[in-house]
Design a protein around this nucleic acid. Structure first.
Lengths: 365, 365
DNA sequence: CTGAAAGCGCTTACAG
DNA sequence: CTGAAAGCGCTTACAG
């Protein structure tokens, strides 16, 4: 593979000059520039990014550590992150923690060893050692989706509280009174917040959230199934199961189906995180949709700001309720608060435009 | 950040000695080793992978260029690739081509600039310039899922011909005679092969595949929708639509639903590539499942072999038919050839073990 | 067993 | 505008 020396020789200049034209340095004669460019072309020369990184101390690479690639929500997040990063001249290396703190640490370590310029993390837990260390050491970093309280890093996330209130109002309007939740890990902010938002919304309607109606899941399908089975075994099973993510909703569907029960007649189901397939499940699943693409893009911009020494903006975007049929047919008129996006067509999200929504709330970290 | 010099100073040895203990070189005194290790510990030293790569000319990194991350099939493939790579001491950088040759080339270029040790590709097309160039230049490379004829690189893929025959037999047994296919891009091997296999299977039953029943899709949901609408507009619409991937099947579901038609009563649907959600769609979708995890792992092993100078084994694994209800209720007994995996429970794949299946056919490239 | 030194492929002050 | 030279953080023959 041709190196910079070969190009210099071919062009009849020094490697310094080659480097200058390659990096757009102004002081190069037109003649030299032409010859260098020709040589580059002739040899098919491509600069060695490893050597350049060592010298310049920057890799133009971002690390993204997510909790679970198999979760469509994170897949979409990863996709939008890569897009925005590419637009800004960065590559991204994805590390999949699979909801395991040890794997998360493995990826953080590997990424840091490779001297990535900045780190985007959706923490699996309260903070694995290496991750906390990275934050303390001043590595440019921003949290997406999930974050760790007390760590001074910008947070880009969505606030589902209003949507959860809409959901509970919708359920209450449908006559449901015994509502249960499949919670995510308490070690995650999203795990906690969604339960809190749900509980508060219930309180608003004079309803309680008994411990028996809080099932501990781990954001994976199997746990959704297990928890739902537990709910169904209760002397007084809930009328509604709200899964805190889409994979646990899949598990809940598995469990309900295995018992031969019908949704929503026998039990209603709703989920946090919307996905295209929810339009086509039996029945279509009522869900809370996040502006995932916007989150990914905002997170990259915040991180690139930090890398550039600027403050880096924390962003909170609203989620929204998408009503479908899994909680029961809403009465023709008179919903307590008009549910959003309840079009009869209800097109699958895959066909929609990528610009999800606009921010509702912003604050500088 | 502490460098090797700091460690050397702290331990009272030369950097050469530090390097030796870090790399497990045998000729180091026990005493020196102890002191170095203590210094490493004390300083929290981590070797700079960039510098090491420059020196050793290897990055311990694999590049994976896939056609579409948002496709659950490729997500799973990427996951298994990363797992196996990690087990073998490699990191992987994923490039998402989004079915665009120009983006594919962008990622190949970026990956090569970073001097990855080997490249795993599922080509989007007949071969973008930079990719062909990489193959010609002798970059260790292997194709997964899709490949390019005439390029001398090991291929790890699955053969769906037998499963497609099973599918057609199943459909024929159900009384269907007008069968249509939503094809993938003709520039991809999987795009072509699935149509060919379908046509041949039809011929086996004395059925033809008229041009009007071959819709040109691009493996994306929108194309599945568009093609299906075209089918439904035909004077004599097909009785069955077979989508060549799961995203186009999603689009087909959208289209059928928008027309207010029922599956399988009004039109039957089957898909290539199985996903957990197919169990819960309305109705559950009959699909052809690939041993995705096995493919990813075999591909990594083949690539690591090539990197190590060994030949690198091409592998072909069989896909299998999973019968559900989207093509009609099979007659209680007497299926023409017993469809595989038609358990009444039909558990969602998410709960199954990761070891998919064993190879049926192997050949050394 | 150990250290001084060269060198991986670049970039960038420093002179001229 | 241009080139010689230093140096980024490592690894590895080469002497000793």
């Amino acid at each position: 593979m041709a190196g910079i020396k070969d190009v210099a020789a071919e062009a009849g200049v020094s490697v310094a000059t080659v480097s200058r034209v390659l990096n757009g340095h102004p002081s190069v004669s037109a003649d030299a520039r032409t010859r260098v460019l020709a040589a580059v072309q002739a040899l098919g020369y491509r600069p060695n990014a490893v050597a350049r990184s060592l010298r310049t101390d920057q890799t133009r690479t971002l690390g993204l550590v997510i909790s679970d690639v198999m979760n469509p929500y994170f897949t979409e997040l990863a996709r939008s992150v890569e897009e925005e990063a590419r637009a800004l001249g960065y590559s991204v290396i994805i590390g999949n923690a699979d909801e395991r703190p040890d794997l998360q640490d493995h990826h953080v370590t590997t990424l840091l060893d490779r001297r990535i310029d900045g780190l985007l993390v959706s923490p699996t837990d309260g903070g694995s050692p290496r991750m906390l260390e990275a934050a303390r050491a001043g590595t440019p970093m921003v949290f997406v989706d999930r974050w760790i309280p007390g760590v001074d890093v910008p947070v880009v996330r969505s606030d589902g509280a209003a949507a959860v209130r809409d959901l509970v109002a919708h359920l209450h309007g449908l006559g449901h009174r015994r509502l249960a939740i499949i919670a995510g890990p308490a070690a995650t902010t999203t795990g906690r917040e969604r339960v809190d938002a749900f509980r508060e919304a219930l309180t608003g309607h004079g309803l309680a959230l008994p411990d028996a109606y809080i099932g501990q899941g781990d954001f994976q399908a199997a746990s959704g199934r297990r928890v739902t089975e537990g709910f169904l075994d209760l002397p007084e099973p809930p009328e509604v199961v709200f899964a805190a993510d889409n994979l646990m909703a899949l598990g809940a569907l598995d469990a309900v189906r295995a018992r031969g029960l019908r949704i929503p007649e026998d039990i209603a189901l709703a989920a946090f995180d919307d996905i295209p397939w929810f339009t086509h499940t039996d029945p279509p699943v009522t869900a809370i949709a996040q502006p995932t693409g916007d989150l990914g893009r905002a997170a990259v911009r915040a991180l690139v700001d930090r890398i550039g020494g600027r403050p880096g903006e924390s962003v909170t975007l609203p989620a929204r309720l998408v009503v479908r049929r899994s909680c029961g047919e809403p009465p023709a008129a008179a919903a307590p608060r008009p549910p959003v996006n309840q079009s009869p067509k209800d097109q699958s999200p895959v066909n929609q435009s990528p610009k999800d929504q606009s921010p509702v709330q912003r604050s500088t970290s």
